[in-house]
Design a protein around this nucleic acid. Structure first.
Length: 425
RNA sequence: GGAGAGGUAGUCAAGCGGUCGAAGACGGCGGUUUGCUAAACCGUUGUAGGGCCAAAAGCUCUACCGUGGGUUCAAAUCCCACCCUCUCCGCCA
């Protein structure tokens, strides 16, 4: 949700910022609707004032046993009551029109975000490590997974359909070891509080984190219970403090969650995104921060660093990129992606997306903090980042760590979890 | 899933059509008293949206008693639906 006060103060400036993302975005008829709304409020409130005074008089008259006078007033109020009803209806109509308009407008980008409508215009901030020297006939992760009996896509398809995975044997152990490692690392090394949230959420939760109303098609929906299946733990963590007023000293609050994530991926057709790259279900460890607004951009840097720790511990080559305005997620003001090198595709692949949503989600979910005792509550800033998506990491480990003999070296930090240091056929 | 009891301000809790502009208590904040602390006493106490004002301060209005509808001149209070909590039963990991 955009800041209404900021829009009113300078609609043109807000619109300009929105257009940095997408030139087709505009505030539409918001200014007119907003003015209309205020007019109606003024009218209806003065009528309600009249009604309140009359009510008091009626009560007084009845107490004084002046039934006739009371009856006369009651008759008069009938008309006012009808007007109030009409205006209230008008107001709720205007409110919902405004709500619909605003609920579909994304967060304006931060000034430090490069302006471009082309996703390719991301800025490489830094790189870590080097591409592995695979000077042999190397395999992609699907082939490796099959040969090493770690992945079984055929049987997964039998059970659920295309774009689902089935991990088995050392594949299952590797996946679990990855999840465990990432989860424990963020708890013990970076001080995050661990959370295992529900995997289903209600409408309000999905609205607050901004999956609704615009992206309903991306999520699995359980009609019978009016619940949505978790597409990212961001949704669940974001709503953890919905409607609360936090104390300034509590901030920042840092959470790490593990969940399976479910996405319909409608319209994301085949191509080279086979195997574990784009699935309906994948595993992800998610980081989430509730922070003081003055700290949020520093916290974004911290968040990226915390996610990078994992890739470094796994000794994977990756880079950090800053997304341009045209590639920003709906609720994000600024986003860094971590991209890991995938030899089979000859390109980097996103394994983490770290965003500062500023007060966008805070406003939607009324998530606030009190700057000082007795002071007016203000909206917190929220940040989210994957730390990380295992399924793509799994692919990266297989491909980057393979050797000419077809075996795969297990990263040292996962030896205990997997139960071996080399996976061989 | 069935039966019952509940959901009122930061917390506990009274109120069950019109002096509710929500009692009272606790907590919080300010003060008086005090060698210091405690106690006692006095005062104060939420959120949101309008209006007046150049703006702040201030004044003022409206709304908020789980959520959404309805009845009524008037709803915390009556009616309907839903959500949540607790107890018991059923079912299950």
């Amino acid at each position: 949700m955009l800041d209404l006060k900021a829009i009113r103060a300078n609609p043109a400036a807000m619109e300009e910022r929105l257009k940095r993302r997408d030139p087709s975005l505009s505030l539409g008829n918001f200014p007119q609707l907003d003015a209309e709304r205020r007019q109606i409020i003024q009218k209806v409130e003065s009528l309600k004032h009249q009604r309140n005074e009359a009510s008091e008089q009626i009560a007084a008259l009845k107490r004084a046993r002046q039934a006739d006078e009371a009856q006369q007033l009651i008759a008069q109020m009938g008309q006012i009551a009808a007007q109030i009803k009409e205006l209230d209806a008008e107001l709720s109509q205007t409110d919902s029109a405004i709500g619909q308009l605003l609920s579909r407008l994304p967060n304006p980008p931060h000034d430090s975000v490069p302006v471009s409508y082309d996703k390719a215009d991301k800025v490489v901030i830094r790189e870590y490590g080097q591409k592995p020297q695979l000077d042999f006939a190397y395999l992609n992760h699907v082939e490796l997974g099959k040969r090493l009996k770690m992945l079984d896509f055929e049987r997964a398809a039998r059970i659920a359909g295309a774009r689902f995975a089935l991990y088995k044997g050392l594949g299952a152990r590797l996946e679990m070891a990855l999840i465990q490692f990432m989860f424990q690392y963020q708890i013990t090394q970076n001080g995050y509080t661990p959370i295992l949230p529900p995997h289903l959420g209600n409408r309000q939760s999905f609205y607050t984190s901004s999956q609704l109303p615009k992206f309903a098609e991306d999520d699995y929906y359980v009609e019978r219970d009016d619940l949505y299946l978790n597409p990212t733990a961001e949704v669940m963590l974001c709503n953890l403090h919905r409607g609360e007023i936090l104390e300034a000293e509590e901030l920042p609050i840092n959470y790490v969650a593990y969940t399976a994530c479910f996405r319909r991926e409608a319209g994301a057709a085949g191509g080279e995104e086979r195997g574990l790259i784009r699935m309906h279900q994948f595993n992800k460890v998610e980081l989430f921060k509730f922070v003081h607004p003055k700290d949020s951009y520093q916290e974004l840097e911290n968040l990226v660093q915390d996610a990078e720790d994992i890739l470094q511990a796994l000794q994977l080559h990756y880079r950090v990129v800053l997304l341009p305005t045209g590639d920003l997620g709906f609720q994000a003001s600024k986003t860094y992606d971590l991209e890991v090198w995938l030899p089979s595709q000859g390109r980097y692949y996103e394994v983490s997306s770290c965003s500062n949503c500023e007060a966008f989600q805070g406003r939607r979910g009324e998530i606030r903090y009190r700057p000082a005792p007795g002071a007016k509550p203000e909206f917190v800033h929220t940040l989210n980042g994957s730390g990380l998506a295992t399924s793509r990491l799994f692919a990266a480990i297989l491909e980057n760590n393979q050797r000419p003999d077809g075996s795969v070296v297990v990263p040292a930090v996962l030896h205990d979890g997997v139960g071996t240091d080399v996976i061989a056929g």
